[in-house]
Amino acid sequence: MVAPQQSPPTPPADAERPRSTFLIGLIGALAALLMIGVGAIIWMTQGADGPLGVGGPFALVDQDSRPVTDRTYRGKYMLVYFGFTFCPDVCPTTLNHVADALDRLGDKADKVVPILITVDPKRDTPEAMKQFAGAFSPRMVGLTGTAEQVAAAARAYRVYYKENRTGPGPNDYMMDHSSILYLMGPDGAFITPVRAEGSGEQIAADLARHIK
């Protein structure tokens, strides 16, 4: 830390000199403090757990093989879930409840894009995502990408995922993954997590509270 007291000693000959040095030092110290403060805010929103840090830019490929980013869905609420198509239990159950919730929302549902982002890009091609996500709702978007793109998206959303081997074959693995729905606003900012274990009715109620 640069403190004004640590500024090099000034020649006493000029009476005005120490004062201006002190002022410059003070301004410098304030600037340093400001930078630390801004840095801390950036660190808190980017690097620490908490609602402030959820979401952010991503670059992926949609179910029709089109490159998309988070900006593609600006103007709509995004209901984001991370899962994978080899997931036989939790993902279909959650996505069914999401589809049910959208059915219950009526006109408000038009403001929401339900988005499934795979945590298994190795197996989840755009075609697989299209078939899987589309099975629950024609509105549902299924995103995949390279391993790096998916990792970056998961990082932005603070989503944990890990391969869990079940046998020696190339297909013999399941994914452990965070199972949380994230509601993002039309400006892309995080609004609230939504319980993925909730029924369609509960999810609809949670969404209705936040969608204007």
Binding site: D89, V90, Y160, D176, H177, S178, S179
Partner: peptide, 10 residues
């Protein structure tokens, strides 16, 4: 299926 700290595992 076990959900621990929001992470679903089979």
């Amino acid at each position: 299926t076990i959900v621990e700290d929001g992470v679903a595992k089979m």
